[in-house]
Amino acid sequence: MTPVAMSLEELIPSSHRKSYVYSILIRTALVMSTLIVGLSIPFFGLVMSLIGSLLTMLVTLILPPVCYLSIARGKVPPVQVALCCLTVAVGAVSSVFGSYSALSKIIESLRG
């Protein structure tokens, strides 16, 4: 929420920026809107679990080694290539298991 709050705080006129009241109001409104969305959408937690299992593994375990190997192509020793491939494989397997688990819980919730 911090990046969103900071970008909204930049819209405050410069004469009022030193006041913390606007910052508190913006952050409170953001948290309240998130709470309303979370409570009003059914299966919100399960959908967030699905998104998290897909995107977290992609950003943390899959993309960094792939980018490293593409940037340092030809200069990487075979041991590092093997470790990068192992990391990508672990990330892909974890993403598949997490996505399967989240999808199965969503389907179970929809049926029952």
Results as ranks from 00 to 15, higher is better:
23 S>V: 08
53 S>V: 03
27 R>A: 02
51 I>G: 13
17 R>P: 09
38 G>S: 08
69 L>T: 14
20 Y>E: 15
43 F>Q: 10
67 C>L: 13
47 V>F: 10
8 L>C: 04
46 L>H: 09
66 V>H: 06
43 F>E: 06
55 L>C: 09
64 P>R: 05
57 M>Y: 13
44 F>S: 11
47 V>I: 08
69 L>M: 12
55 L>F: 15
65 P>F: 07
30 L>N: 04
62 I>H: 02
68 Y>D: 11
54 L>W: 11
41 I>M: 05
51 I>T: 12
11 L>Q: 15
9 E>R: 15
55 L>R: 02
23 S>D: 09
5 A>G: 05
14 S>Y: 07
58 L>H: 10
6 M>Q: 14
15 S>W: 13
18 K>L: 15
34 T>N: 09
38 G>K: 03
79 V>I: 11
40 S>P: 00
58 L>Y: 14
12 I>G: 05
11 L>T: 13
4 V>M: 04
39 L>H: 10
23 S>C: 05
66 V>C: 08
55 L>V: 12
68 Y>L: 06
71 I>C: 07
76 V>G: 02
13 P>S: 14
51 I>E: 08
52 G>V: 03
73 R>S: 12
26 I>E: 06
80 Q>Y: 11
51 I>N: 08
59 V>F: 14
70 S>I: 06
8 L>A: 04
10 E>V: 01
73 R>G: 00
52 G>I: 00
58 L>F: 13
63 L>T: 11
46 L>S: 05
64 P>I: 06
80 Q>D: 14
29 A>R: 02
49 S>L: 07
39 L>A: 06
56 T>P: 00
